[in-house]
Simulated scan of single mutants.
Amino acid sequence: MILSVSAGQGVWPLIAAVTVTLFAGFVKGAVGFAMPLIMISAFSAFLPPEVALAGLILPTLFTNLSQAFRQGGGPAQATAWQYRRFLIGTVVFIAIAAQFFDLIPRVAYLLLLGVPVTAFAALQLAGVPLALRLEHRNRAEWGVGVIGGLYGGVSGIWGPPLLVYLLSVNAPKLEAIRAQGVVFLIGAVALLVAHLGTGLANAQTLAFSAALVVPAQIGMVLGYRLQDRLPQARFRRWTQALLVVTGLNLVLQALVA
């Protein structure tokens, strides 16, 4: 039964998980990211770690599918091609970095990612211009993709480098959200495949995860309504603010590890 994955705690953990997922889906629908961060942070307070992680797998997969293809297959394919350097760098270096997972202290990679991401987003919020020059964008995209892959391979976190790049090139709202959907969709598929192999994604945990797909999608639909009304400038500032929160969360995880 679905409730059995909540460690025999009855219906309340499921109700709490549904509520958290609804809110996380709303945030993702509005700005394009932060759903796994919200879910894993909240779930860890009342669910076993393996159930908390497994719970976000299917909602993450389906919401990113929705986000990537919201404007149709053509735009999604065009976005994948446009950001192919980031995608290639990320996928290749995830595979490479994963081999060194046990050699890099968790505290080190959390701080090395959290501190610069927080500083970058905070400076942008403060009005400091950090846009890349057009002639540097291809090299920057390769570089950020490699960095994202290196971090993703050892930590499972590769979203912040993409967000930093999208902010630095001042990507339009719809393009930025679609790019996140495409990149995160690939990551979500990889996460599912990996944990089918580890056994963390099994019949019980996937039943729990599947139960959260509907509230995640409902939250996304509500968030889309807000996204459609957000002007570019406000969307950018919301993204910067959430990126600061993301970076600070990584630093906090490092400090309490």
Rank of each mutant, 00 (worst) to 15 (best):
L200T: 14
E50T: 13
I96L: 11
P172G: 04
P231E: 09
V146K: 00
V115A: 13
S4M: 11
Q9W: 13
L22E: 08
G89C: 06
S41C: 10
P59R: 04
S155N: 03
L255M: 05
V92F: 05
D228K: 08
A30N: 14
P161S: 03
V221W: 14
L248Y: 06
L134W: 12
G29D: 03
W142Q: 05
P116I: 12
V213E: 05
Q71W: 11
A131Y: 14
I157M: 05
R225I: 05
Q180A: 07
G55V: 07
L191Q: 12
I157S: 01
G89E: 06
A216N: 09
W238R: 08
A203G: 15
F184Q: 14
A34P: 04
L174Y: 11
S6D: 14
E141K: 03
N249F: 12
P36I: 10
L167S: 00
A17W: 09
A121D: 06
P231H: 07
L14S: 04
G89P: 07
A122W: 13
L103H: 12
V27C: 04
F120Q: 07
V182D: 01
A95K: 08
V91A: 05
A97T: 08
L252I: 10
A126R: 13
G72L: 00
A17S: 11
P36C: 09
R106E: 11
S44G: 14
L111K: 07
M220R: 12
N202H: 05
A257N: 14
L53T: 12
G247I: 00
F62R: 06
Q227N: 12
G74Q: 10
Q227E: 08
T79M: 01
P161G: 02
L103G: 10
P48Q: 09
G8P: 04
L192M: 08
F26Y: 15
A78Q: 00
G29F: 02
G8W: 05
G159E: 02
M1A: 08
L162A: 01
A108W: 11
R139A: 15
L250W: 02
N202Y: 03
N64Q: 00
F120A: 09
L230P: 01
V128G: 09
G127H: 10
G199P: 06
W12K: 14
A241K: 06
R139Q: 15
V164F: 02
P231C: 06
A95P: 06
T90R: 10
N202D: 08
T90I: 13
F62H: 06
E141A: 04
G29V: 04
L222A: 13
W142D: 04
F69A: 05
A30L: 10
V183Y: 03
V214G: 02
P36A: 09
L248W: 07
G72W: 01
R178N: 00
A98D: 15
R229C: 06
P116R: 11
L87V: 03
N249V: 15
K28T: 09
A203W: 14
A241E: 06
P231D: 12
P215N: 03
G55E: 04
A119H: 14
G152E: 04
I57V: 11
N138D: 11
G74N: 15
P75G: 02
S41H: 07
A131W: 11
L58I: 10
A16C: 15
V182F: 02
A7Y: 13
L65Q: 11
L150M: 09
L255C: 07
A131E: 10
G74L: 15
A68P: 00
Q9H: 15
